[in-house]
Design a protein around this nucleic acid. Structure first.
Lengths: 196, 196
DNA sequence: CGGGCGTCGGTGATAAAGTCACCGAGCGAG
DNA sequence: CTCGCTCGGTGACTTTATCACCGACGCCCG
């Protein structure tokens, strides 16, 4: 398409709220976390961009000429390609496959947002936390994350997470270590995640 | 593009969660409200589709072949055009103006979702309610809505809205009538909406 | 006009969630 | 080992949400 993919080390902030937008980001490898930060410092994870996806934070910027409204952080080392605005528009016009890819990303983001809203607005905290654990475990039975990070995932406070995890541990659903949560009974967690 | 715009009376449910998707909706006139409903019956307003915009709930469906995940209700009488999937894809390929319009709608939805998440996850209830009132007043100084509806807008409960409105009334910010709220001090409300 | 009835809103009681502050435990660096 | 930092546990409190109930209003109809 254009521009060579370039490596970006984990921990890099690709963009922050208020930044002007430089180009369209297509991710080849790694995980990009997009978050929203409140005035008081609280932070929620909006979604993650996976390999093969395009970052749509960028999309809104390019289309409307707006600045970024959220923060993008490289969760792992990345391999990403930055496509200039003109090239992006041309590819959208000419390249069927590229269009399909962007559409897919848009649909995925919508689904993510809907999930997030449903979680935050309609779901009790225990189920929300169970969902976050299952999501972050990605099929495995262990999550490497601090309570602080889980608070970001659940749009809640660190103390709230600590207490709920303690309750889960009492019931034998999880085991908590420093910086890691082991899922002892993923089935029960999944049931809790579904049934509220 | 295709298909004639057709009138739809207020109150019509255009789609509900789980429905298969029939086509791509382009709105000419009126206001379409898209909501998410919980198992327990609680409902939040995700966003509204305005004239000239496309309904992106439809978008995700067509692109990914998924069913609807939310509910679409005609808030007023509508004039809408339904574009078959094939026509939609062709227009996206060929028609620059159509593409620009769809992109605009996507960007708008993203902004709406971000606002919603920010409201629900990062903002205290009084500010959230103030924002909802200002948004629904659309520059005017009166909102025609029941407390129930405002609960949907703020992703909260009816009783919570009642109490907060009573407090606003005490402070002289609003005056409450049956089915209507008068904004007596929009400036103060705006300040509250901004500063949390 | 005067009931009957459905929606709307006020309110008390209680539970859940979030906030704040503090402290001790674990871990790594020097 | 000790310093210093992050991590997590916990008590006390505030805010928000939920549940249940009831009176007020509007409307239709006899």
């Amino acid at each position: 398409m254009s521009g060579a993919p370039r490596p970006i080390p984990a921990g890099t902030v690709l963009f922050r709220a208020g930044d002007p937008c430089r180009g369209f980001v297509l991710l080849h490898e790694g995980s990009l976390r997009v978050t929203l930060t409140a005035a008081n410092g609280r932070e929620v994870v909006l979604y993650r961009v996976a390999p093969g996806e395009v970052c749509l934070q960028t999309f809104s910027c390019l289309v409307e000429g707006r600045d970024y409204s959220a923060r993008g952080l490289a969760e792992t080392d990345l391999l990403a390609e930055v496509i200039p605005s003109a090239d992006f528009h041309r590819a959208m016009a000419d390249d069927e496959a590229f269009r399909a890819r962007v559409f897919g990303a848009v649909a995925q983001r919508f689904a993510d947002f809907e999930r997030l809203v449903e979680d935050v607005a309609l779901t009790g905290f225990p189920a929300r936390l169970a969902r976050a654990l299952l999501r972050l475990a990605r099929g495995g039975n262990s999550v490497r994350a601090t309570h602080e990070q889980l608070a970001g995932e659940t749009a809640s406070g660190r103390a709230v997470v600590s207490r709920q995890l303690a309750r889960f541990a009492e019931e034998g659903l999880v085991e908590t270590l420093r910086g890691e949560i082991r899922l002892c009974d993923p089935g029960a967690l999944a049931r809790l995640a579904r049934d509220g």
